[in-house]
Design a protein around this nucleic acid. Structure first.
Lengths: 156, 156
DNA sequence: ATGGCTTGCTTTCTTTACGGAACTGAGCGG
DNA sequence: CCGCTCAGTTCCGTAAAGAAAGCAAGCCAT
């Protein structure tokens, strides 16, 4: 969508946005995650322009987030499925759900609940440190240049 | 940017996207998070159109993600600061960083590292269950209708 | 065999938003 | 009073989104 491509920036946020940052992409991912996996289904569910849906699906397949596969040869019918890379992106969706539930749900409460397989309880995700297991929020970290930093260039 | 507003959908992902889903918004948030907080600074850092930057900042202030405040009266100069709501959004950025580092960083390695205050180690965020503390990925949950579900309507 | 139905797109057209560049205006500072 | 910085605003050309229609392949019933 945007003319400026984010993929070339030395920033993991920008590079993630390059993949799913365009409008509709996260919602398409969500649909496929919950089992709405065919072109017509997604189009109806989101009420998205067929043209844009075609473009997004092609892009996400190119980026190896989705796989297009035939579930019927005759007639040829296709569905879209998450790759491993795509499933990990869905973790990001869960975090978005967490923020949205907390700040935008209002009176009515969250529209969707998530039950954790491991404990069977309704839960939300909590960001924790990969090293010590304690909560790890944006306010709990120092930001340092890493090996892939483009020295002397804009970080963005 | 998109003509279709996501804010009215009964979906926390859509409502989160309504706030920061537009192009550049997450990168603007990131800049302010790391201390690049003035109009000219952000514009230079991201090389974003001044017009779009103006629009985004105004939107994020309206949505109470950012606060515009004068750091000088004479001459009148402004900077943008995260609200509590905005700081929590930054957790989402950390998750995006995690995915981006893992899938898009390549040979060079991650451009930026994050040191966790609590343990002092370089770390990344790991989504864990708010109830039992075990890892909680998108593949580890069941999706159920919640109280705020728009019954009979599209979930999106 | 043919008219209708569904699926999975593609095409065309209009409207909107982005990107780039120039311009404004307030307030220093020399 | 000339130039500089900051913080935008305005204008214009182009690219992308949205709406709607069209298309082709393959059933399916009459």
């Amino acid at each position: 969508m945007q003319r400026t491509r984010f993929g070339d920036m030395a920033c993991s946020i920008a590079r993630t946005l390059d993949v799913i940052g365009e409008p509709w992409s996260p919602l398409i991912l969500r649909d496929i995650y919950v089992g709405i996996s065919r072109f017509e289904q997604i189009q109806r569910d989101l009420d998205i322009s067929r043209k844009v849906l075609t473009e997004r699906l092609k892009w996400l397949v190119e980026k190896e987030i989705l796989e297009r596969r035939a579930y019927s040869q005759h007639p040829p019918r296709y569905e879209y499925a998450l790759t491993g890379k795509g499933q990990e992106l869905c973790d990001l969706l869960l975090v978005m759900v967490g923020w949205g539930d907390r700040w935008t749900a209002g009176e009515a409460g969250p529209p969707v609940l998530y039950r954790h397989h491991a404990c069977g309880r309704i839960a939300h995700v909590e960001p924790r440190c990969s090293e010590c297991g304690e909560p790890m929020h944006a306010t709990d970290v120092d930001v340092l240049p890493g090996p892939g930093a483009a020295v002397g260039e804009r970080t963005a």
